[in-house]
Amino acid sequence: MRKKKHLLFATYADFDNARDAVTELKVLDLKEMAVEHIELYSPIEHPEVEEILGHFHQPIQRFTLFGALTGTLCSFLLVAAAAQSMFTVQPQGGKPVIPLPMDIVIMYEGTILFGVLSTLAAFMIYSGLPRRMTKHYNPKVSEDHIAIEVEVKPEHIEHVRQALQNCGPLEIREVTE
């Protein structure tokens, strides 16, 4: 049986408050190992989140690179093989059956197409989309509020709640799932 998760979901009116709360939680975590996972919900992108939440391991660009190279190779094989696999091997216009200069055009497009598709696949993988909405999600987040979701062990809930409370939240919810 899956272990139950205990979550605290705190909503703040301001990014600065949320940042303070996260810092406090980090301090608490150093002291007591109380926090398992912190997630920040925000209506816009804050490039600073990596500084306060730690590094996100998302090597999307590697997917892009390999996708793009696969695209180059596949489109070359497609073009070259298609040119000579006709039942009448087709020389045209005094040119060789497998003409390289014009293959480059198709390879270029193939590179981009596969690159784009694999980037998108990597986006889906690393952002965890598509996913079901959690029940405690607060629609206000998509407007102008910031929320912090903290996964805690049941015995630490009160400590963490106190830490969140210190930074002036609009609301704190306790969720078990």
Partner: peptide
């Protein structure tokens, strides 16, 4: 299969007076 044939005949397929 097409690939095998392509690799075997590469130089012929690259020549421009194919019907010489």
């Amino acid at each position: 299969m097409a690939l095998k044939r392509m690799l075997e005949n590469w130089s012929r397929l690259r020549q421009h007076d194919y019907y010489a």
